[in-house]
Design a protein around this nucleic acid. Structure first.
Length: 643
RNA sequence: GGGCCCGUAGCUCAGCCAGGAUAGAGCGCCGGCCUCCUAAGCCGGCGGUCGGGGGUUCAAAUCCCCCCGGGCCCGCCA
């Protein structure tokens, strides 16, 4: 970890840490982890539970740490109480030090790691199957993945963003069947239905899939299930073109064994045969185009779009299979070629507690061999994903690969890492991170692309935008309409992205439109508004003359607290980035906005008569604005100068 | 049956990994504040057996064990 360029306060706190290390051998990173704000003002500003490391009386130790600190910084005083070493900041001296920094052109921001600590990091995220529009669940994935990308990049790492198109497999075969029945191109379909292309494909996918399931439910004699599916079909029919719907449904009903047909389409595509090849690629490309329109609205972009098919067709999958066949972990399972995961675990991990922790092996872990090749000779998703995982390391020469994938896939992700281990790819296995998050659910049910049950991201964006526009027009009677719309769009994006990134990734989110459309406190728009306020003050104030700043202005209780909280930004953001925790940046920004808004209410900047104080306050506002701007940008929340 | 994630105020969540100082926000509800840098704001009030029980510890929301509730995963699906 490195916090150079963290500004005066962070530098001061680091000095305390170094002195702590040299005096009582508490490593810097432990100190950073445990350092916290004090719960009560009289304890000082920051507390460190030194009593956890040292038994007995702390005062003499703190005295010697204090002596060490005072040789390097003049704005920090150490005290001790109730097992804590407390740090008190002398605000006016901190202010003077701040002036030295800004005088040298320092701007508050997330500090970069040392160049020799910079890593090449691949982030694979979103990767939604191109068979239906992006829904709010994909938006959580995209928001997390994109925020992580922005964060790591800001920290000085080299980030490569990749989107994996799962075009080989059953889901694509289903849409392909639907479109083949209709005999029209994706574009013709979209114009016929008068829908955005991904929505049009999603509709065909849901109808086709549900029809197929209807047939198999009937074949199994499951009447209840069949009735349920029939009523879903009726609803889907209403939402699109009833003639097209009937045509698909009736065609599927006339097929004896739709499953066999799907398997054939899948196999032919995997072998790169026409006409399946052109058909499926044209569908996937069309839908991805639709995704891109939506993703670019929310500020998400990729460096590479990786096609699963090209991983297969280029021979990478065959190579991996060959390598596995040569290994001792290959086995037969129900007559198929399979990988004996448990024997890899026994061999490579055994009872090594730290390895079990690295790979998060559940206790009592016991799974059957992982089937790699179906009896018809086609591969399974995870077989291809092993090849793709290796590809991600090789193609980008990556040190770390982060896969943003929902928690449902914990087991397959673990199996893939273990497979890498079995192939002797130890470095890759250790450095592939499954960044897991819980899915977004609708109240009382799970979203389902198969049944056309989802709230699309496009709809939510439009709805949020309409709501924002309404608010803007109510506040600004004479605003230009196109300006109002562009602001509304940014508010919508800010509201959605913030709401998806603010809760910890492992918190299940139950989707609630009203919650996303709420623009008040604890939301993205609240932060955007706070930024606009700060920006506005600086606009009216004009350039700050640092020579006139009187640091004693920071002796005021609220200004002092705002100054200290703001100057913590570099440390908070660096820590959040290193720990891959965007939610920590979110809660920090909310707290910052709270303190700023409270202060804003009763201490005017531009009406301040004392020039030294006015410039000191303006400098404070600038710090707040820059910290907000940096943090919001990391989270992908657009910054607005006017609302 | 086995495993994983979650359970903190009426609702949504932070704090738990790295145990300590009076458990923090927001929404909602009640009551106030716009001749004064944007009221998407601010101030005040109501509201908590930290799912339950045991254990470890000077100290447990935090660590360990058991139980309960919600979700997910254990497929020749992805």
């Amino acid at each position: 970890m490195s916090y150079e360029n963290g500004g005066p306060l962070v530098q001061g706190l680091i000095v305390v840490g170094s002195c702590l290390d040299s005096t009582v051998k508490v490593p810097l990173d432990v100190y950073i982890k445990l350092l916290d704000r004090t719960p009560r003002e009289e304890y000082g500003d920051f507390g460190f539970p030194l009593g956890r490391f040292i038994r007995g009386d702390l005062s003499s130790i703190v005295d010697s740490i204090s002596e060490c600190v005072s040789r390097n910084v003049d704005f920090i005083i150490l005290t001790t109480e109730k097992g804590f070493m407390n740090i008190r900041v002398l605000e006016d001296r901190l202010g003077s030090e701040l002036l030295n920094y800004v005088g040298k052109g320092w701007v508050i921001d997330a500090p970069k790691v040392n160049p020799n600590e910079a890593k090449r990091i691949v982030i694979e995220h979103t990767s939604a199957n191109p068979v239906h529009p992006l829904h709010i669940g994909h938006a959580r994935n995209a928001s997390l993945g994109d925020s992580l990308s922005r964060m790591l990049k800001a920290r000085g790492h080299i980030v490569i963003r990749r989107y994996y198109v799962n075009d080989v497999g059953r889901q694509m075969a289903v849409v392909a069947l639907g479109l083949r029945i209709l005999g029209i191109s994706p574009n013709e379909l979209a114009s016929r239905l008068n829908m955005k292309i991904d929505h049009a494909i999603g509709w065909v996918y849901a109808i086709t899939h549900t029809s197929i399931d209807y047939v198999s439910a009937n074949n199994r004699g499951n009447i209840n299930e069949a009735e349920k599916l029939a009523s879903i079909l009726a609803k889907l029919r209403e939402r699109g073109d009833s003639k097209l719907a009937d045509y698909i449904i009736n065609s599927i009903l006339s097929i004896d064994n739709p499953e066999a047909l799907l398997s054939e389409i899948m196999a032919r595509y995997e072998y790169g045969l026409e006409p399946e090849k052109s058909l499926i690629m044209s569908i996937a490309k069309a839908v991805i185009e639709g995704f891109n329109m939506t993703l670019s609205r929310i500020g998400v972009a990729f460096d590479y779009i990786d096609w699963e098919s090209s991983i297969v067709w280029s021979g990478l999958v065959a190579n991996v299979l060959e390598a596995i066949k040569q290994s001792k972990y290959i086995t037969k399972y129900k007559d198929t070629l399979a990988l004996d995961i448990m024997s890899i675990v026994r061999d490579k991990i055994g009872d090594d507690e730290s390895l079990r922790e690295v790979f998060k092996i559940p206790k009592g872990f016991d799974i059957p061999p992982m089937v790699l090749v179906r009896s018809d000779g086609t591969t399974l998703y995870w077989t291809r994903d092993i090849a793709y995982s290796i590809f991600k390391f090789r193609d980008s020469n990556a040190d770390i690969v982060i896969n943003v994938i929902s928690g449902e896939q914990r087991l397959p992700q673990l199996q893939i890492r273990l497979a890498l281990l079995g192939l002797g790819l130890v470095r890759e296995a250790h450095n592939m991170i499954h960044y897991d998050y819980e899915i977004v659910r609708l109240p009382g049910r799970v979203m389902s692309g198969r049944r056309g049950e989802y709230v699309s991201l496009d709809e939510i964006l439009d709805e949020a935008k309409a709501r924002a526009l309404q608010e803007i027009l109510a506040r600004n009677t004479s605003i230009d309409m196109s300006l109002a719309e562009s602001i509304a769009e940014k508010i919508a994006v800010g509201a959605i992205r913030f709401s998806l990134v603010q809760p910890g990734a492992l918190k299940p989110i139950v989707f609630d439109v009203e919650k996303i459309l709420n623009f008040e406190e604890n939301t993205g728009p609240y932060l955007q508004y706070t930024y606009a306020r700060a920006h506005n003050i600086l606009e009216k104030h004009g350039p700050i003359d640092y020579r006139l700043v009187d640091p004693t202005a920071y002796k005021d209780r609220e200004r002092r607290s705002l100054l200290i909280h703001t100057l913590m930004y570099p440390l908070i953001s660096a820590k959040a980035i290193d720990e891959l925790r965007p939610e920590d940046i979110a809660s920090y920004l909310l707290k910052l906005a709270d303190i700023f808004n409270r202060w804003y209410q009763r201490d005017s900047v531009i009406h301040e008569q004392n020039i030294g104080f006015r410039e000191a306050k303006a400098l404070l506002v600038k710090l707040v604005r820059d910290a907000l701007s940096s943090g919001l940008t990391l989270l992908g929340v657009p910054v607005l100068e006017r609302m």
